[in-house]
């Protein structure tokens, strides 16, 4: 499986190329942040500063937007981000046991990243696949109808 994110910084030339794609329009900021994060894995201070100067808007504004949305991260994360839904429909059908199985299998608490930088474990709000709850998302792939027994089998695909 192809990782969607690399845990490395992004070069200014790449940022510049992305800004040009959107004609350096400040109203495209959310799309720009999506693209830069896809390239770099996260939104570093350097990237945020670069974007701000490229769009001619304050750094604080870019940082404010980058930290508002849960899909953006200003810190490096694992190669695979495991997002676990713990909203009511998943909760009712046993999301807690899925969380425990993931924590045990990866040896990290929710919010943590494995020491090899491979996995980050975090909560997400509803993924919109409640017909197959409980569900998780690993990068862009969704898994549903989960049981604690299935967790190690799924993680094996990524290890």
């Amino acid at each position: 499986m192809e990782p969607a994110a690399k845990s490395a910084g992004v070069c200014p030339a790449k940022v510049s190329e992305i800004l040009a794609k959107y004609s350096r329009r400040p109203d495209a900021l959310v799309s720009i942040l999506h693209d830069v994060q896809k390239e770099a894995g996260y939104l570093s201070e350097e990237a945020i500063t670069e974007i701000a100067s490229g769009l001619d808007i304050p750094v604080s504004k870019v940082y404010g937007v980058a930290t508002f949305y849960t899909l953006f991260s200003t810190k490096p994360k694992g190669q695979y981000i495991i997002r676990v839904c713990e909203n009511a429909p998943c909760h009712v059908l046993g999301a807690k046991a899925i969380v425990e199985a993931l924590e045990k299998e990866l040896g990290i608490p929710m919010g943590g990243t494995t020491s090899d930088g491979k996995f980050t474990l975090e909560y997400t709000s509803c993924l919109g696949v409640c017909g197959v709850a409980p569900a998780i998302m690993i990068n862009e792939a969704v898994y549903g109808n989960l049981t604690p027994e299935r967790v190690p089998l799924i993680l094996k695909e990524y290890k």
Binding site: N87, A88, P89, S125, C126, G128, V129, C130, G131
Partner: peptide, 11 residues
């Protein structure tokens, strides 16, 4: 921007 937990109709 369907985000209401339990909703997946728009998707």
């Amino acid at each position: 921007d369907e985000g209401e937990p339990g909703t997946f109709k728009d998707r």
